[in-house]
Amino acid sequence: MTVFNPPTSSDPHGKEVFIRCRNVSKSYRKGKTIVTPLEALDLDVGRGEFLALMGPSGSGKTTLLNLIAGIDSPTTGELWVDKQNLASLKRGQLTAWRAKHCGYIFQLYHLVPILTAFENVELPLLLDRSLSRKERHSKVAAALDLVGLANRADHRPTELSGGQEQRVAIARAIVTNPGLLVADEPTGDLDRKSATQVLDLLREFSSEYRKTIVMVTHDAVAANAAQRTLHLEKGQLVEQVQITTSEPTEV
């Protein structure tokens, strides 16, 4: 088996490589058959890049996203995020890695309904014992401010619109200041106006805060917000589209 080094080189587009997949496959048993949603995939994503993954259902987009986020482990291959080979980590280590390095944004927000917006955003920070209560509160307030929901801190998810819920989820994803943000169809359940707000935020995190963002989407308009779009089909990369402009695309 080939052993790769951590991504220290630059990708063909001149960016420092932040995510490097080499020969990554994922298989699992479904009944009596073995399903392979991803097969021998190679991919480099630069630091601070905003990448969109597109493709039909079952093409392996979410599987790849879950692997990059450390939600799942590849069956074969190596998957480096920054200096860490996620393929070598066990479940508990992946959990600890996610807490520090990755923020996950879900299509249906996945907020805890019994907690307020503030408490939802605070959840990841409670894992960091070194933070004082005051520091935590200050970080939560800053994150909510960044997504424009400082005045909704005490509201529960049921008291927020879909767009506001997704922005709270984004605040929760960024509050620990992770290097990587992954988003699984973050605009899939939103109206156009809310979708625009969410995509603007993601672009801002990529361009201003150098967050590496990997977003799965079915929406070509949403994908246009990314700097690069990859198309997957049957677990293989089939096409990539490079957006050259750094200006936000009209959504």
């Binding site: 479940r91 959990t95 600890a96 996945h110 805890v112």
Partner: peptide
């Protein structure tokens, strides 16, 4: 189940 999974995704151990 989904909420519990979200907590794991955030970084809470089982």
């Amino acid at each position: 189940i989904r909420e519990l999974a979200t907590l794991q995704a955030i970084g809470y151990s089982r």
